[in-house]
Write a protein that binds this DNA or RNA. Structure first.
Length: 376
RNA sequence: GGGAAGUUCGUAUAGUGGUCAAUUACGGGAGACUGUAAAUCUCUUGCUUCGGCUUCGGUGGUUCGAAUCCAUCACUUCCCA
């Protein structure tokens, strides 16, 4: 994996670049649709590539490991072949599940013991075996095993957790260096900055992560309930330390405004379930604001789903029709809304790249973020 | 023509003397959702100037008190002719 910066904004910390993987180039800043179990929920791979123009998607180590299991993925020849996706894939390590499945896991210095949410069976994740699993999956970018701390989180817990995350990282990096890709394409390994909302812990973590010398770096443990201003402050603190010449990935973020603000602070990569999950729940994002299609006010609105939208669904369906589908519980509603939202997110990062390149990003960002977050 | 059962807040239901503006489901309205245990979850759903007001087919009655008991009328469903 290579990263090349193409433009640097003079008035913010935003930049554009290109991440080159063996599964294609990824222009940055980029949004990566989440496809946890090897499927971006409700969206075909063809729609993902042709209509949404996603360049890279996520898979999840924990979920794929439990089902279908690594023997199937290995026999399939890796996740790309298994799911029929020849563009880039990034795998989350299961660190988020350490957070979200808190009642079903136990953290030890060795690793983390999980109880499967599917059948209750017990499993151990270590920094080493997670690298092995990600090698088997064959993702272009593999994430290190970390603990995504909850919010609020005491300073004591955050300190202890960070120490474990760092120790896990050192072992993960070593195992990454000692292991080889299985399918002939190269794989990168990204460490993750933690430290909750504590500035000194974040600084310490950013330094530790930067020193690993990996091809890219991630910021995790944010957008877990803390006020957004706190999140933005942590990004600033961390990005002051993370190397400029490596891509920076803000994990699990976020809203259109979060993405704009993240880019302004030097973030290059984002992922979030919001466009797909909220889409399934009847909400769409547009350049003019968000729309809750369940609302009665749209029942006889026969205008295009999103007149400014870049996706085909925006122009062949009306708000009234998609609302009808949502209210009726039709699966097509989830598909249309997911396609629309993902296309909107990808168009958003495309516009951000254009504006960084032509120097209009700083003037545009505040008004755009505000406009996109208003409720229609 | 004879007999039986029934009529409750949009619909279907629970409630068989006071703890009932009244159960539950659906339907309606709104909110949440940020490295996906989510096509999920939460709230709300008689009116109200928030003190109350008017409700359980209609009317009349019994009772301190009725959605609940009695009478009667209306309507509905089923069975027998």
């Amino acid at each position: 994996m290579k990263f090349k910066i193409t433009h640097t904004d003079t008035r913010t910390n935003a930049r554009t670049g290109v991440i080159s993987t063996d599964h294609g180039d990824v222009p940055t800043p980029i949004f990566m649709p989440v496809g946890t179990v090897g499927s971006v929920k409700g969206v075909h791979q063809r729609e993902l590539s042709d209509d949404i123009n996603a360049k890279i998607i996520l898979g999840n180590t924990y979920h794929l490991y439990l089902r279908p299991g690594m023997d199937i993925i290995r026999k399939a020849g890796g996740l790309h072949k298994f799911i029929g996706w020849d563009r880039a894939i990034l795998t989350d390590s299961g660190g988020f599940q350490v957070f979200s499945l808190a009642e079903n896991r136990k953290i030890t210095p060795q690793g983390v013991t999980f109880r499967s949410h599917i059948d209750g069976s017990k499993h151990l994740f270590t920094p080493e075996n997670v690298v092995d699993i990600e090698r088997t999956i064959g993702s272009d970018i593999m994430m290190a095993l970390d603990e995504c701390t909850p919010y609020p989180c005491t300073y004591e817990y955050a300190t202890k957790s960070l120490d474990i995350t760092h120790k896990w990282l050192a072992r993960g990096v070593q195992h990454f260096k000692e292991s080889e890709p299985l399918y002939g394409h190269s794989q990168a390994y990204f460490p993750i900055v933690q430290g909750s909302v504590y500035k000194d812990l974040r600084e310490k973590s950013a330094e530790f992560i930067a020193n690993q010398g990996m091809d890219g770096n991630a910021i995790g443990g944010l957008s877990v309930g803390e006020p957004v201003e706190m999140m933005y402050e942590m990004i600033e603190v961390v990005n002051n330390i993370l190397p400029l010449d490596k891509p920076r990935y803000l994990m699990g973020v976020g809203t259109p405004a979060n993405i704009i603000e993240g880019v302004a602070r030097g973030i290059d990569m984002f992922d979030c379930v919001m466009p797909t999950r909220n889409g399934r729940n009847g909400m769409i994002f547009t350049s003019q604001g968000t729309i809750n299609l369940k609302n009665e006010k749209w029942k006889d609105d026969f205008t295009e789903l999103d007149p400014n939208g870049t996706s085909f669904v925006d122009h062949c369906y009306t708000k009234a029709y998609v609302r009808h589908l949502v209210v009726s519980g039709e699966r097509l509603a989830a598909q249309i809304a997911s396609i629309h939202n993902l296309a909107f997110y990808l168009a958003l990062v495309a516009e951000i790249r254009t504006r960084i390149a032509d120097g209009t990003f700083a003037d545009w960002k505040d008004e755009a973020a505000k406009r996109m977050m208003q409720r229609l």
